[in-house]
Simulated assay, not measured.
Amino acid sequence: MIKILIADDQQLIREALGTLLSLQPDIELVGTCGRGDEVLNLVQETQPDVILLDIEMPGMTGIEIAAQLTECKVATRSLIVTTFGRPGYLSRALEAGASGFIVKDTPAAQLAETIRKVYAGLRVVDPALVAESFSVGACPLTDRESDVLIAAQDGASVASIARQLHLSQGTVRNHLSNAIAKVGAENRFDAARKAEANGWL
């Protein structure tokens, strides 16, 4: 039996995936949780072979969890199952050590087959996402430019961003200007929107 754990902040999704996958003769659901910061303890308790991770969860993201599992050399393999099929998320998930990345509208039979492949040690990625990732390219932003764009998303002023990130206002303006140019945006809000849409933030 392939033991799986499902981590998703939406209860309906957890229950639906759990019910569908439990119908498979070789897959056993050993646990679920709705917060990212609950996952590692649950992994230790239940010892799943494969964990299905949503990306956006309270406490910790699925990508951060995948990275921690990799760093801790935990035997559990991680499979990102997300609504957000963004190229930037795909590359970040694979860099974090995830064994697979698929979107939630994948048919149940295909999801089960993906779990079997991940369990067998293969890396499985939605082919459409791979093609899109190549067309979009790698994230052009530096870590600091990303930090500044994230801080700018809520409409914060340059002065406020500078205080928050412990930078000078001139440095913040430079980072914003560079980020706007790199993503081909009209202003910082457009840059943040485009970067978010590509999964770079």
Results as ranks from 00 to 15, higher is better:
residue 12 L to I: 15
residue 78 S to A: 12
residue 116 R to Q: 09
residue 168 S to M: 06
residue 119 Y to Q: 08
residue 187 N to Y: 03
residue 61 T to P: 01
residue 23 L to V: 09
residue 13 I to F: 08
residue 77 R to W: 02
residue 57 M to K: 05
residue 119 Y to F: 12
residue 10 Q to D: 12
residue 172 V to H: 01
residue 198 N to Q: 15
residue 44 Q to N: 10
residue 52 L to W: 07
residue 30 V to D: 00
residue 34 G to D: 11
residue 97 G to D: 11
residue 93 A to E: 00
residue 152 A to F: 07
residue 27 I to V: 08
residue 58 P to L: 06
residue 140 P to A: 10
residue 122 L to P: 03
residue 31 G to V: 05
residue 85 G to D: 07
residue 194 K to P: 04
residue 13 I to T: 13
residue 106 T to N: 11
residue 156 A to V: 09
residue 97 G to E: 13
residue 147 D to L: 11
residue 72 C to H: 14
residue 65 I to M: 00
residue 4 I to L: 05
residue 163 R to T: 12
residue 45 E to L: 15
residue 192 A to L: 10
residue 189 F to W: 09
residue 127 P to T: 09
residue 100 G to I: 02
residue 66 A to E: 02
residue 180 I to W: 00
residue 54 D to V: 08
residue 39 V to D: 00
residue 91 S to H: 08
residue 198 N to W: 08
residue 114 T to R: 03
residue 169 Q to F: 03
residue 78 S to D: 06
residue 155 G to P: 07
residue 131 A to V: 06
residue 178 N to F: 05
residue 94 L to R: 06
residue 181 A to F: 03
residue 32 T to V: 14
residue 146 S to E: 15
residue 130 V to D: 03
residue 66 A to M: 06
residue 34 G to N: 08
residue 137 G to I: 01
residue 15 E to L: 15
residue 11 Q to F: 15
residue 126 D to P: 02
residue 159 A to Q: 15
residue 103 V to E: 12
residue 34 G to I: 12
residue 93 A to R: 02
residue 93 A to H: 01
residue 188 R to S: 10
residue 170 G to K: 10
residue 63 I to H: 05
residue 115 I to T: 05
residue 133 S to E: 07
residue 72 C to V: 13
residue 177 S to W: 05
residue 159 A to C: 07
residue 106 T to C: 15
residue 166 H to L: 11
residue 69 L to W: 06
residue 18 G to E: 00
residue 12 L to H: 11
residue 76 T to R: 04
residue 81 V to S: 01
residue 5 L to T: 11
residue 163 R to I: 10
residue 131 A to W: 00
residue 70 T to Q: 11
residue 2 I to N: 06
residue 119 Y to R: 03
residue 172 V to R: 02
residue 161 I to P: 11
residue 48 P to E: 09
residue 80 I to M: 01
residue 185 A to C: 02
residue 142 T to Y: 07
residue 61 T to A: 03
residue 195 A to K: 13
residue 137 G to N: 02
residue 54 D to F: 01
residue 201 L to V: 10
residue 137 G to S: 04
residue 187 N to H: 09
residue 13 I to V: 09
residue 27 I to S: 01
residue 162 A to Y: 05
residue 50 V to R: 01
residue 26 D to G: 10
residue 125 V to I: 14
residue 200 W to N: 09
residue 138 A to Y: 04
residue 185 A to G: 00
residue 133 S to R: 15
residue 84 F to I: 04
residue 181 A to L: 08
residue 16 A to M: 11
residue 73 K to I: 09
residue 4 I to H: 09
residue 159 A to D: 14
residue 143 D to R: 09
residue 109 A to G: 13
residue 63 I to T: 02
residue 111 L to V: 07
residue 23 L to E: 14
residue 23 L to R: 15
residue 50 V to F: 01
residue 62 G to R: 02
residue 187 N to M: 12
residue 82 T to I: 10
residue 98 A to K: 00
residue 46 T to E: 13
